[in-house]
């Protein structure tokens, strides 16, 4: 109970961007989770008599070029896009933070080597790496996640390393060393918890970027394979019919935008909060 009230109070104290992002993000998440209940139709059921129909009746957003219900496709398609983006992010953050924080603590040749690897990886656009992997392994869910994680961990490693270096110079780390705490303990109990706030802010900010990359890959036909679909693939399919039924393009486009924006807003709110608490701690005004 106290946990809940404390969380609520914490949320109320945040910047308005965080609250706005949280609200719209929650709505999107709820819609995607309850897709089977929220959509009256099967997303893959074709009804050619309803081809390119506008909104009306129980087809709230109308039908696509094969007469499938657009609203249902939007909800089910979003599941794929969001899950891929979220999963790659979680993997990237975990791997990146651990490697980065560890490098920052040990320093020396290992640190130097890993950071050069990061430099090389970071200079490849994600899409190029993904295209390369898809060419080798073939398209699919696993390939997409692997490809996006392969490059995705690097910015987190860089950030975590910077924070670890900064934290290492603090007195409480010196204290822990003098008190005889082990390196693993210092890394897990002191360095990473203190790095979490800026890292989580960056995670949120990167989410939108991931979502768009997933969309772009699917748009190129390298993501999910038919008959399943996601927002990127829906955009690609709708391309030829954009003039006759603009909603087919707008709906997935707006869905990507709203989802990316709401998570980014949350991230921005978190960043403002992190900055505020850092200033409070260090006593700047």
């Amino acid at each position: 109970m106290t946990m809940v009230t404390r969380t609520v109070r914490w949320i109320m104290r945040q910047h308005w961007t965080f609250i706005a992002g949280l609200l719209s993000g929650t709505i999107v998440a709820l819609l995607l989770i309850t897709a089977p209940v929220m959509s009256l139709h099967d997303p893959v059921a074709q009804d050619l008599s309803m081809r390119l129909q506008g909104p009306g009746g129980d087809h709230w957003l109308g039908n696509d070029q094969l007469g499938r219900d657009l609203w249902a496709r939007l909800l089910y398609g979003g599941r794929f896009s969001v899950v891929v983006a979220a999963l790659t992010l979680v993997l990237s953050v975990t791997i990146g933070t651990l490697i980065g924080a560890w490098c920052g603590r040990v320093g020396g040749a290992i640190d130097e080597f890993v950071m050069r690897v990061v430099d090389v990886l970071i200079s490849f656009p994600e899409i190029i790496v993904a295209l390369f992997l898809i060419a080798i392994i073939g398209p699919g869910f696993g390939t997409l996640v692997l490809a996006l994680t392969l490059v995705g961990w690097t910015p987190f490693a860089r950030l975590a390393r910077g924070i670890a270096l900064d934290i290492s110079a603090r007195d409480y780390i010196v204290a822990a060393e003098v008190l005889g705490c082990t390196r693993t303990f210092i890394l897990l109990r002191h360095v990473i918890p203190n790095a979490l706030r800026p890292i989580s802010a960056m995670t949120f900010l990167r989410f939108g970027h991931k979502l768009i990359t997933v969309g772009a890959l699917s748009y190129l036909g390298l993501g999910i394979q038919p008959p399943d679909s996601d927002w990127g693939a829906m955009l690609a399919d709708a391309r030829q019919f954009a003039v006759r039924q603009p909603l087919l393009v707008f709906a997935p486009g707006i869905a990507i935008m709203v989802t990316a924006l709401s998570v980014t807003l949350m991230g921005q709110g978190l960043e403002i909060d992190a900055d505020r608490s850092r200033r409070l701690r260090t006593g700047e005004s």
Binding site: D171, H190, P193
Partner: peptide
């Protein structure tokens, strides 16, 4: 500075 010598999150 004792404030700096203690982890703010612990």
């Amino acid at each position: 500075n004792p404030l700096a010598a203690l982890d703010p999150r612990m």
